[in-house]
C-alpha cells in the first residue's frame, strides 16, 4: 500500500515538474488576489492588519478551488484513471497520494509565500507565524475536500462553477477556524484551540475525503 502511495505521489510530482506553469497558476492567483485587497480597501496599515487573516484565508480557499477541479482531469483524458479504477490497490490510497502531491504543489507554496504577503499587510512576526501555522494545518483539509468536489464534477459541463457551489459550504469550518486564529491572537486570546480544531478538521477530512472521493470516481466512471 505504501509503495503504491509513493509511486503515485512520485508520478504526480514528476508530471507537475514537467508542466511547471500549472503549479504556478494557483500561486500567482493567490498573490494577485491578496495584492488587490489593499488597492480596494485602502493602504492604512491598521486596517490591513485587521483584515489580513481573512483575506489570506479566502484567497487560499479560492486558489485551491481554482486548481483542484483539474485534479483528475488529465488522468481521465489519458486513460490513467481507468487503470486506477481497475487496480487491485485500494483506490482511496491512490486518491490520497494524488491529493498529497496536489497539496505539495499548490498548498505548500501558499504557506511558504504567506510571510511575504503578511509583510505587505503589515503583520507583526508573531501574527505572521500564526497565519502560516493555520495555513499549514488548514490547506491540506482544503485540498482533501476539494478532491471530493473534483471527482464528483469530473467531466461535467460547467464544472468550475459547480465545484464552487459544492465545496465552498464544506470549507466554512476551516475558514472560520483558520482565519479565527489570528483574530483571537489580536484579541489577546490563546490560539492553541483554533489550531487544534483545524487539526481535528484535517483528521476528519483525512478519514472521510479519500474514501468519498474514490466512491465519487467510481460513480463518475461507472
Amino acid at each position: 500500500m505504501l509503495s503504491v502511495f509513493m509511486a503515485v505521489l512520485r508520478r504526480d510530482l514528476l508530471l507537475a515538474w514537467r508542466r511547471r506553469s500549472d503549479v504556478l497558476t494557483a500561486l500567482g492567483f493567490f498573490l494577485l488576489v491578496t495584492s488587490l485587497f489593499p488597492l480596494g480597501v485602502g493602504p492604512e496599515p491598521d486596517q490591513l492588519a485587521q483584515i489580513a487573516g481573512g483575506v489570506m484565508w479566502v484567497a487560499a480557499l479560492l486558489a485551491t478551488l481554482l486548481s483542484v477541479s483539474r485534479l483528475f482531469e488529465s488522468d481521465e483524458a489519458d486513460g490513467t484513471l481507468e487503470q486506477m479504477l481497475l487496480s487491485v490497490e485500494p483506490l482511496a490510497v491512490i486518491v490520497l497520494a494524488k491529493v498529497c502531491a496536489y497539496w505539495l504543489l499548490t498548498g505548500l507554496p501558499l504557506v511558504l509565500i504567506a510571510p511575504l504577503i503578511a509583510l505587505q499587510f503589515s503583520l507583526t512576526p508573531d501574527e505572521t507565524l500564526i497565519v502560516c501555522a493555520s495555513l499549514l494545518i488548514g490547506t491540506p483539509t482544503l485540498s482533501l475536500l476539494g478532491a471530493i468536489g473534483a471527482s464528483l464534477t469530473l467531466g461535467l459541463r460547467g464544472g468550475g462553477a459547480l465545484i464552487a457551489l459544492l465545496v465552498l459550504p464544506l470549507y466554512i469550518p476551516v475558514l472560520i477556524f483558520g482565519a479565527g486564529a489570528i483574530d483571537r491572537w489580536r484579541a489577546g486570546l490563546e490560539v492553541g484551540s483554533n489550531l487544534a480544531l483545524l487539526a481535528a478538521c484535517l483528521l476528519v477530512a483525512l478519514a472521510v475525503a479519500p474514501v468519498a472521493s474514490a466512491a465519487a470516481l467510481r460513480i463518475a466512471q461507472d
Binding site: 471530493i148 464528483l152 459544492l166 459550504p169 464544506l170 466554512i172 469550518p173 472560520i176 477556524f177 480544531l197 478538521c201 476528519v204 472521510v208 468519498a212 466512491a215 465519487a216 460513480i219
Partner: peptide, 16 residues
C-alpha cells in the same frame, strides 16, 4: 454522496 458529506458537515458548520 454530496448530500451525505453535507449532512456530516452540517453539525460541524453549525458549531463552527
Amino acid at each position: 454522496l454530496i448530500a451525505i458529506v453535507g449532512a456530516v458537515n452540517v453539525p460541524i458548520i453549525y458549531f463552527s
